[in-house]
Design a protein around this nucleic acid. Structure first.
Length: 412
DNA sequence: ATTCCACAGGAACGAGCGGGGT
DNA sequence: ACCCCGCTCGTTCCTGTGGAAT
């Protein structure tokens, strides 16, 4: 995993395998590793000091402060594109507030749930339950049974809850807002004097449209919008992290600037900037280089994309892979109809019954969301409307992942 | 101004899985 | 033992539609 796709210097130059290993191990063991604290670059790292988000932190703190007096705070919504600091700010405030709460011995709990990981209504309840020490089997119960177990326990113990609901748009888009409705309703009907407050976090502003108006009005009593970081801000953030993570002087100014500008091009995504820095650092270290150069950053950028593509494609279900195999066999772009007949042919050649075109159309939309293909709907007037389909990632990375599948590799 | 292609994408439904509570 | 549950992945049937051609 660590070494996926990264050729090790010196392999295949006639040296014994032992030499290669020695070199790798020596690089790792060298006391003067270029890193001093690699964890500061992990994407779940929460620094003690968060730059350029003072206002947001203050606002959120203000909104949640009533907790300290045992009052119910408003439900809050945090909006902003990926990598604009929503999650860090929420977790940071949660940590600080948590310290006060335990000092004051209040019976209030913070719960953090990520809807991308708990991606169904039921899984959300299971996750909620597990953080509250309520056992809910991972399948079998009805939704109402599961939620009443939770609310019963909360009422019995007199616990207040602040639920931080990250990437909340995931459940709402795929299901409906039942769970949210239940949770917002909880205060009025299900809990005596206790409260459940929700801090919802979403990358997608349009997601409001999916919400039932009743849920929307009670869920979004307060809002904080997170603007994207500018290049200058990204640079400052990176400089801060570099100080924590690397030995002084290891990361060149040019490399840092390149990380910032690459991430700024992606709507000011700080997480991407930090990822880039980390992978570039690992690349440099693996090569025994004393410096992280712009070249390392460029290569890191490519390797991140390739690795991601490879992982995503590899874990796709069979028919999605077949579609990609069909897509690989055309040089540039196709549309749904042509790709479908191509796919159906390949499937039959493998002795697999092809799925319907309706289903394939759906899978194409899913692949579009995953970023593996680009599939906008275009109209060719008299010649109908269809998706214009082209690969959005390097062909060789797709091909490499597909060849891993025994069935599919037999037809290239 | 109409027509009409080649689909898009919603809705309803069902099989199959991995499990409940009583 | 019984009938229950949520969820995924698929089908069938369906109505809707941008814009070149007429």
């Amino acid at each position: 995993m660590e070494f996926a796709g990264a050729p090790v210097e010196g392999v295949g130059e006639g040296g014994a395998a032992g030499d290669v290993l020695d070199k790798i191990f020596n690089n790792i063991m060298k006391s003067n590793s270029i890193f001093t604290n690699r964890d500061a670059l992990r994407n779940d790292y929460i620094p003690d000091r968060i730059l350029f988000r003072d206002d947001e932190i203050a606002q959120l703190g203000q909104m949640l402060a009533p907790i300290l007096r045992g009052n119910k705070p408003s439900n809050i919504f945090l909006y902003g594109k990926t990598g604009t600091g929503k999650t860090v700010v929420a977790k940071y405030v949660m940590r600080k507030l948590g310290e006060r709460i335990s000092q004051l011995k209040l019976n209030t709990k913070f719960i953090y749930v990520n809807a991308r990981l708990a991606s169904t209504q039921y899984k959300v309840l299971v996750e909620l339950g597990s953080q509250l020490d309520i056992s809910i089997p991972f399948t079998g119960l009805s939704l109402s049974e599961a939620s009443s177990r939770i609310f019963d326990k909360l009422r019995r113990d007199g616990v207040n809850v602040v639920l931080i609901f990250d990437e909340i748009d995931y459940i709402v888009k795929n299901y409906d807002d039942n769970v949210l409705y239940e949770l917002t309703r909880a205060n009025n009907e299900l809990l005596g004097g206790n409260f459940v407050s929700i801090v919802g976090i979403s990358n997608d502003l349009k997601f409001k449209e999916y919400l039932d108006p009743r849920v929307l009005s009670s869920l979004s009593e307060e809002e904080i919008v997170f603007p994207p970081y500018t290049v200058d801000e990204l640079e400052a953030i990176l400089r801060d992290r570099v100080k924590m993570a690397f030995r002084p002087g290891v990361v060149s100014e040019a490399a840092l600037k390149l990380c910032a500008s690459l991430a700024a091009a992606e709507h000011g995504d700080a997480r991407r900037a930090v990822d880039l820095l980390r992978v570039a650092g690992e690349l440099a270290e693996r090569e025994g280089s004393e410096e992280v150069s712009p070249d390392h950053v460029t290569r890191a950028s490519k390797s991140i994309e390739r690795d991601r593509t490879y992982e995503v494609v590899r874990s796709l279900p069979l028919h999605a892979k077949l579609i990609l195999a069909a897509a690989l066999s055309v040089p540039d772009e196709t549309n749904t109809g042509r790709l479908y007949s191509n796919y159906a042919l390949m499937a039959k050649r493998l002795g697999i019954e092809p799925l319907t075109q309706r289903r394939i159309s759906g899978i194409l939309s899913e692949l579009d969301v995953l970023g593996i293909i680009n599939a906008p709907v275009v109209s060719s007037g008299r010649f109908g409307r269809s998706k214009r389909i082209r690969l959005a990632v390097p062909r060789d990375a797709v091909a490499r992942a597909l060849r891993e599948d025994e069935l599919i590799s037999s037809i290239l």
